[in-house]
Amino acid sequence: MTQALLRAEGLHKSYGGLVATRHLDLDLHAGEIHAMIGPNGAGKTTAMGQLSGELAPDAGRIVLDGEDVTRLSMPARARRGIARSYQITAVFEEFTVRQNVAVAVQAMARHHFRMVRPARRDPELNAGAEEALGRVGLLHLADEVAADLAHGQKRQLELAMVLATRPRVLLLDEPMAGMGNAEVDAMTRLLEELRSHYAILLVEHDMDVVFRVADRTTVLVDGAVLASGAPEAIRSDARVQAAYLEESA
């Protein structure tokens, strides 16, 4: 097996007496979708937060492509290629769809202190934005204001923003949450297309999706890894069934 692109070793985080992640080990390879599942409160989002740099772990370290990024801030990690989406959609509500993605394109394009030329007619930003919107199938809504989008479309938009930063690692926190069946289907197919270009960590509740797209699955319970391996193995794992699958069924 190749070396992991992103590796977490012994991530530990507690809030007062409550342990959110318990000496968590996790790795993520280029070209794979690694699903992270577990009951509510298992520490999935907290783990995501530590990987993206929003939360500082109490102990442990995070290595991106051989570089220790544990002490780097979220913006610094983002510029090194770690991009994330949120469980609760985080887009710029007042911007148009195109502007939303253009801001993401600009994050990597730089020239942030350019104060004269209008960004609206900036060919570099718009081309990048339209390419990303095309990939998620949202190009036809480019001039809508984000606040007017339907829920599922906002999730697509957020994914377009994530892609537009040209990341290597995607941390996707329940990208299908609240979507209808057709949208889930489209998003699933999109994830399968993206697989070969990125290392994707996917937190997802929809087991059908997980078993369809994931190359590996890690089950988190009470902040610790209960089991990790191929989806089929996880599905038949007695401990997992006891701890999680039966509860959710």
Partner: peptide
């Protein structure tokens, strides 16, 4: 007027709307 329409202006407006999102995109 030029400033608020520029790349810089967009960053400022982005920070107003959702600062966390800006950080996740790589902005400080």
């Amino acid at each position: 007027v030029m400033v608020v329409r520029s790349r810089f202006g967009r960053i400022i407006e982005g920070c107003r709307q959702n600062e966390q999102r800006m950080r996740a995109l790589g902005y400080k």
